[in-house]
Every structure is written in C-alpha cells, then in structure tokens.
C-alpha cells in the first residue's frame, strides 16, 4: 500500500500522470516485445521458423487492426497489400539482386503505401458494409491478377529463389538459411521499430485521438474542423504500409511467394488472428498470431479439416468473447484490481 502511494507521488513529480490502465498496457507491451526478442534462445530451430512466420503474421494482423480498432473499418481484402508487397519485393530482387536490404524494404513499403493511397480513395468513401464488400472485391481482384499474370507472378507456382544478399551493415550475416535465429532477429530489427512507430503514433499523439474521434462520431469531428475523409484515408495508407512491411519481411523469411499470400482465405485468416488476440489492444493481434500459428500447426497435424475450427473460432469469438484474449486478460486483471482496492478500503 505504501509502495503504491510512493510510486504515485514519484510519477506525479515526473510530469503528467499516466492512468493505471495505460501503465499496465505499456508494461505488457514491453514484456511482449522482450519475450519475442529473447525467444529464439530458448526454443528449437523449427520453433524459431514458426516464430518468424508468427511475427510477420502478427504485424499483418496489427495493420488490419489499425483500420478495425482505430477507424472502425473491417477490411476483407487486406491480403491485397500483404501479397502486393511480397510480390513487389520478389520482383525487385529479381531485377536488382544486389539491392541493399534497407533500400529494398523501403522501396517495397513505399510502393505498397502508394497502392494504399490509390485504393483508399475508393474504399474509404463509405464505411460499414460497403467498405467490407469493396475491400473484399479488391482482394479478389489482386488474387486474380496474381493467378492470371503468369509471366510476372509465376501463377500458381509463385516466385522463389530470391534472397537479399546485400545486408549493408551486417556483412557477415546471411539470410540464405531461413528459420535461423539470425533471420528472425533481422526481421525483428525492422518489424519492431515499424510497429512501435505505429503504436506511438496512434496511442500517444494527438493524431491518434483524431483518428478515434472520426471513428466515434464522424459528423462531430467534421464540425470540429477535421477533414474526416483525409484522416481515414491517412490511416488506411498507414495500414497498407504496415501490411507492406509485414509482406516484405514474410517474403524474406519464407524465400517464396505464392498466391497463398494474396488469396481471400488469407484475408479472413488475418481477421481471426486479430480478433483471437483481441482487437481492443494494439498488440493483441501479435499475441493472436503466435497462438494461431502454434494452434494451427498442432491442429493441422491432427486433422486435414482443421479449418473447421477457424469457423468455430469466428462464431465463438463473436458470440462469447468479442474482445478476444487480451480482453479476457484485461477483465480478469481489472477484477483483481478492484478486489485489491476493496481490501485496502
């Protein structure tokens, strides 16, 4: 009791006090990222490979949730951006094998962001069901392109044998062996700053408040002088860019791109990943991705029809746990806090 009081006074002295929820959230964020970073030292190599997949899927799910949580827009075609980035990176590398990794990622992400700007003009004009259906058709369109344009995308065979050779600052490192801790850490070195930047932007700046204001009452935000269309469009572009980072890193981790990365079921997979972890917390989708990869690996070994569990998960989450795992943990945590509060009184 005296300890908590002390902590409060010192926090107050440092400046504006953070709410206890915000502090708990930050602590959970730090814990999660630390766990992700040190994980390869504890687990087997095949698990490291799975972890690489999971963090890329997790960033992708975070990018989806950027629209869902902060703008209230449910995208059903988000794999279009992920897949576009993965293909774009493979094609860039096939043309310029010596392209340095940072430049490669920046180029891929920029082109995905530009794509997001173009498509966002159409999508963001309407919200609700229209948005979902428009994004679904865009996703289907990109799948059709990847499937049909065999000369460029390789059709159903996909593209392989591309790997960035020029790592610039890390001359001794190599990406030739996917699934190693080196590849994993290299991916995290790009992934974590990108995700942290988005987190900081939306959770800790006035910009984030503006995005949420437009979501909760678009008319009121417009009366306050916000360009609501512009705010939504900007968030859409940010989401596309982040999906681009995820796709680019995923392609590096896999060394292989196929139509699986743009198809519609991947767009729905990322939704279930985000909701499983909990769409109410920025990092919830990352937790969801780790769980999803772990569980789907075991289930798919058990039965070829494991996707039926995906369907059950959708139904179960919507009916019984709309806030996902993060929501469950949060409500338990709050119950503990209130009980402790009562004891103190």
């Amino acid at each position: 009791m005296s300890q908590t009081l002390l902590a409060r006074t010192t926090a107050a002295d440092r400046g504006p006090r953070l709410s206890s929820a915000k502090r708990a959230e930050t602590a959970a964020t730090v814990l999660l990222l630390a766990l992700l970073i040190v994980a390869p030292t504890f687990v087997s190599r095949s698990t490291v490979n799975d972890l690489g997949q999971a963090v890329c899927l997790g960033l992708f799910a975070i990018s989806f949730n950027l629209l869902f949580k902060y703008s209230g827009l449910l995208s059903f075609g988000h794999a279009a951006f992920f897949g576009f980035a993965a293909y774009a990176e493979a094609l860039l590398l096939q043309s310029w094998p010596g392209l340095p990794l940072p430049l490669l990622v920046v180029g891929t992400v920029l082109s995905t962001a530009i794509l997001g700007l173009l498509l966002g003009q159409v999508c963001v004009r309407r919200s609700g069901a229209y948005f979902s259906m428009t994004t679904l058709t865009i996703g289907a369109f990109f799948y059709a392109v990847a499937f049909k344009w065999q000369g460029v995308t390789g059709g159903t065979d996909g593209l392989d044998s591309f790997m960035p050779q020029n790592l610039l600052l890390l001359p001794r490192w190599s990406l030739d062996n996917p699934g190693t801790a080196q590849t994993y850490w290299l991916i995290l070195a790009i992934l974590i700053p990108a995700a942290l930047a988005a987190w900081a932007l939306l959770e800790w700046t006035p910009w984030g408040n503006a995005v949420v204001a437009v979501r909760s009452n678009e008319k009121r935000a417009a009366f306050l002088g916000y360009d609501t269309h512009g705010v939504k469009l900007a968030n859409f572009v940010l989401s596309a860019a982040l999906a681009g980072v995820a796709g680019a890193l995923w392609a590096i981790d896999n060394g292989f791109v196929s139509t699986d990365s743009v198809d519609l079921s991947f767009s729905t997979t990322v939704i279930i990943v985000a909701l499983l972890g909990g769409s109410g917390w920025f990092w919830g989708p990352m937790v969801g991705a780790v769980i999803y990869i772990a569980v789907s690996d075991r289930l798919s070994a058990l039965t070829p029809h494991w996707q039926i569990f995906l369907g059950l998960a959708f139904v179960g989450i919507v009916l019984f746990a709309p806030r996902g795992l993060a929501g469950l943990v949060q409500s338990i945590w709050q119950r503990v806090l209130t009980r402790r509060g009562r004891q103190n009184v």
């Binding site: 729905t268 939704i271 995906l310 059950l312 959708f314 139904v315 009916l319």
Partner: peptide, 8 residues
C-alpha cells in the same frame, strides 16, 4: 465475422 465463420 459470424457469417464468415459459418461459411468456413
């Protein structure tokens, strides 16, 4: 979300 789950 519910109906997509049902479709699955």
């Amino acid at each position: 979300l519910l109906t997509i789950g049902l479709a699955y």
